[in-house]
Nucleic acid binder design. Structure first.
Lengths: 82, 82
DNA sequence: TCACATTTGTACGTATGTATC
DNA sequence: AGATACATACGTACAAATGTG
């Protein structure tokens, strides 16, 4: 069956924030655990159909919020500890 | 006479960081005082010949550093107090 | 050392939406 | 209503960091 895009472009919440919220939920649900790598920008582009810049903004937002850390050349990782 | 661009595209320092550094210097020099508005994105585009996104990144960097604040629809202002 | 794939950083341009005056 | 200003999205391109073979 076909799942429509999870991103709601009619929503007042910006797409990059929606993507970040989804990742945040997955972290809290334990789908992505501390120390583990988050989906790459390309992964997010493929999964949500957003642009690279949008996917990158979502990940950087998580970094700003302290929920993710960036390892250059490697990717974004779920922050360890808390 | 002709002044070349102030931005050095050969430098390892990203253009948006160079623009931010210039604005930072002006703030420290008192050219832009606390509470005053900083140049708009369009101003920076005109002055430095960079793209809107680049100019915006420079201003947002200053915000992240606590040297500027955003007032929606108004522009970026030099942080008051310090 | 080298080459390659992967991943992010950053730049460019363009378009639409919202906020403020 | 119109002008100004930023937020955000899209796409595209090249550079730098990193890991692997």
């Amino acid at each position: 069956m076909h799942y429509g895009s999870v991103i709601d472009y009619e929503s007042p919440v910006a797409p990059y924030r929606q993507v970040a919220a989804i990742l945040r939920d997955r972290i809290e649900a334990g789908q992505y655990r501390p120390g583990q790598r988050l989906p790459s920008i390309n992964d997010l582009v493929g999964e949500f159909g957003v642009a690279r810049t949008t996917a990158g903004k979502a990940l950087r937002l998580l970094v700003d919020e302290g929920q993710a850390e960036l390892s250059q050349g490697m990717g974004f990782y779920v922050t360890r500890g808390s």
